[in-house]
Every structure is written in C-alpha cells, then in structure tokens.
Design a protein around this nucleic acid. Structure first.
Lengths: 167, 167
DNA sequence: ACATTACGCTACTGGTAGTAGCGTAATGGG
DNA sequence: CCCATTACGCTACTACCAGTAGCGTAATGT
C-alpha cells in the first residue's frame, strides 16, 4: 500500500506531531477523506502501518536463548528504521489517553506477538507480557528521551538482562 | 501550591487528555492566563507538578541491592498514585514530539535523579541511564498498555531482573 | 496616597482531528 | 454496451485545544 509508505516517510521527515492527516494524504496522493474511509482514526492508520512494517516476529534459533535474543534484536532493529520508531512512540503515546486506540494497539498489535512468543517460549501469559513491557518499554523510553534509538551495546546489555531474568 | 493539587486531581478525574488548561485553571480557581504567566506550556506545568509530587529519590539501605530495590519500589509507588501515573505517561508522550518539553524533562526531571543515583551507586552514566530506561520505560509501558499500574509481583520480578543484571 | 506588580476576564489566533455532502471516475455484472 | 454500485476527490465545515493580546482591577509595599 502506497499509503503506508507515505505515512512512514512523512513521519520520518516531519516527526510524529508534524505528520498531520492532511500531509499524509498529500504525500500519498490521496484525499484525506479517503484515509478516514479506510481507517477510523489517525491512530488506527498508524497502528496498521506499523503492523505492515513490522510483520511477524522471526523466532529463529534452536535454544530458548536464541529465540529471545533474535526477538529482542528484531524489535530493536525495527524501531531503528526511519520513521518506525517515531511512529511507534507516537501512536503509543496517543494510546495512553485514548482507550479506543489502546484497544486497537492491544488486540491488533500486541496480541499476535504475545501469542507467537508464548507458543515459542512456553511461558505463562504474565511472563510474556512482562517480557514485552521490559523490551518495548525500555526501547521506547530511550527513543522518547533522546530522540535516538538505543545503541548496540545497550541493546546487548538489555538482552542479557532479560535472558538471565526469565530463566 | 494549590495549582499542583488541582492539576493532579483533574488528571485523575478526567485523564490526561481531558485535563485541558481551562479545566485545570477552573479546578485551581485561577485564570488560565495566570497559569501561562508562571509556566511556559502545559508540559512545563505538569513537569513541575510531578517534580513536586515525586520529590527526591529516597536512597535508603546499606547495600547496593537495598538502594536499588528501594529506588525501584519508590518510583513504582509514585507512578501508582492517583493522577501521577497518567500525568507522567502523558507528559512523557507529549515530550516525544516536542523537543522543548523533552529538554525540560531531561534536565529538570531526569537529571537530578541520574546524579543522585550515580552518587549512590557509583556506576558510570550510561549504566544509570539504562537503569532509568528499563525501570521507567517498563512501568510506563505497562501503565500505557493496560491503564493500570504494575502489580506488586511483576514489580518484584522487575527488581530482581535489574539487580541481577547490573551487578 | 501612589506606583508597581500580579491577577482576572474576554476575546482572539492558529492549528488539528474528524465529518457532511456533493460531484465524478472506476468497476463489474447483465 | 449500459447501468448500478462503489470508491474516490474536493470543498467546506464543526469542535476542540494550546497559547496570546489587551485591558481593567485588586493586592502590595513604600
């Protein structure tokens, strides 16, 4: 979909706040009303956009540690992609004050990953949810505080931390 | 300051999004222009409000583990207080798209805690920053995703995770 | 009593999400 | 080939909120 590419490009160039629906529509060569015909809100559009950009979690590796390490590296890499981190942080921040968007994020975004991870790791739900909170929360907090994605070294430290904890 | 109490109360009752400057002013029995005479923006007001509500980190305990544990418990408890979590998450989310507010948050809010923790723990800056990212990021992510603060049990698990990692 | 400062109030700007309504182009079946 | 249906573009709106201007008034302190 051209709209998704235009959305990420606009966010990358103008930031999340600067990426208004008018501008996204213009960048996609589409009328704003068309966006609202397909997505119920700006948050819904960006959530779908991220879902498209991220795709499923690659759960490679034979051992449990390998699987978890690859998952952490994957989400860290995705968040580093131009526009994706700002989009993620932005839509998440909007969701805090918008229960409807929070619902969308929780079901359409977090749910699939939670199920895939539970399947691959054989852990109970609350463990998986804590795992997601720690990884995503930390990466987004760094992104929000500095405007830059987390460094390779800190990502490695974070990975070790989690591997040791959820053993 | 009555304004701080009114701000937290309004956020608690109406959520971060519902807590407009007009409503905060009304709740405080003050004109909106008065708020803007004292604080340069809504974010600045809430940052000061949180600074007032949180106060300094209590760094109790003789051992390193005790200090870190008490710090984690403290911030988790503060975030659980009515209005404080929503205010924290809200101002943080605004900061993502507002470099000026990010500056305020980084210098007036994160800086003092970073210095205090570095002093107490004797760790290099990047370790302290990662510590803050993990703790605050995780707690806020949970708050943002569920609307509720993290449970005692998960907070304990988080604490153990960090104690083991930053050893 | 007077000057200064802080505050209240009304009214405004600028910007954004989201909507209504209408005309027009694409599409697909008969 | 025609027609109905659907999707889209466009203009013009509403509603809402952060932040500001300007003016009058009350507090304050000297």
């Amino acid at each position: 979909m051209t709209v998704f590419a235009a959305t990420l490009r606009t966010i990358h160039e103008l930031g999340y706040a600067g990426a208004t629906m008018d501008r996204i529509a213009a960048a996609a060569g589409v009328a704003k009303t068309t966006l609202y015909r397909r997505w119920s809100s700006k948050g819904a559009l960006i959530a779908d956009c991220l879902l498209d950009a991220f795709g499923p979690v690659p759960l490679n590796g034979s051992s449990r540690d390998d699987v978890m390490t690859s998952a952490v590296r994957w989400i860290a890499r995705k968040i580093s992609e131009p526009g994706a981190g700002a989009a993620f942080a932005g839509v998440f921040s909007d969701a805090i004050n918008d229960p409807a968007l929070r619902e969308i994020l929780a079901t359409r975004f977090q749910e699939p990953y939670r199920l895939a991870l539970r399947e691959a790791l054989g852990e109970p739900d609350d463990r998986i949810l804590l795992f997601i909170d720690v990884v995503t929360g930390t990466l987004l907090h760094r992104m929000g505080m500095t405007g830059e994605p987390m460094s390779e070294g800190d990502t490695a430290t974070l990975t070790d931390m989690i591997l040791n904890a959820l053993r």
